[in-house]
Design a protein around this nucleic acid. Structure first.
Lengths: 110, 110
DNA sequence: AAATTCTATCGTATCTTTACGATTGACTAC
DNA sequence: GTAGTCAATCGTAAAGATACGATAGAATTT
């Protein structure tokens, strides 16, 4: 994304932006939804469900891992992915709080 | 962001991704927080608050307008920006629902 | 050992995002 | 009208994101 000037924002703002990146691409949304609906770890069959190349799916999984919202356990010959409940509830709290700071009555020009 | 294959995802997934983009850059988070904290329309003083050039702030505002989460009213010689309550509550509902689909007990490998 | 399976990574093409200076257009104030 | 203010847009440079084929590494199966 070009060069984001991370330094000039608060840690909180940068973390919110990072968490939001997990949901800011439809493929990652789809992956997260699949991981949840299975209620179990999904491995390479993500590639079958999504119409994306294996390399592309792997790249999205890497991004989700970087953010921390999923983790993968090597379970040869497969890798078992699932939601990281700690970060997931961090996201719940973070977005919940952020979205609640705006009370609907506070709007000024609508 | 390279070329996203929008066609292969559901409308819902694409909309979630779009809404998440509003929060996926710290500058946009900061802008939204400022708009909320003022409880009133903030105009060009956004440029003073953020350490970003006027053109850059304007570009972020344009993106937020495209998503629909803010709207600007021309109030010469200024433009008055504020949260769009309709889209904001859509975001509340959307992320609330999405984040709630994962019950913490459902985790498999943690 | 050889073949198979699965996933990560490399290399690469292309498009998007971020950021800024400069300019333009619209309105206000003198 | 002239000067000044404000915000959008243009043009552009640099870096990140998306996607894929090909390759490599690690483990299982035959």
């Amino acid at each position: 994304m070009g060069v984001t000037k991370t330094e000039i924002f608060t840690e909180q703002q940068n973390r919110i932006a990072d968490l939001a990146k997990a949901f800011s691409h439809p493929a990652r949304v789809a992956i997260l939804q699949l991981l949840i609906s299975r209620k179990a770890c999904v491995c390479g069959d993500l590639v079958d469900e999504l119409e994306l190349a294996q390399a592309t799916v792997s790249q999205h999984l890497k991004e989700l891992k970087r953010i921390g919202i999923i983790h993968g356990e090597i379970n040869p010959p497969r890798v078992c992915y699932c939601i990281n409940p700690v970060v997931w509830s961090e996201a719940q709290k973070t977005f919940g709080t952020l979205l609640d700071t705006f009370a609907l009555s506070e709007s000024c020009c609508n």
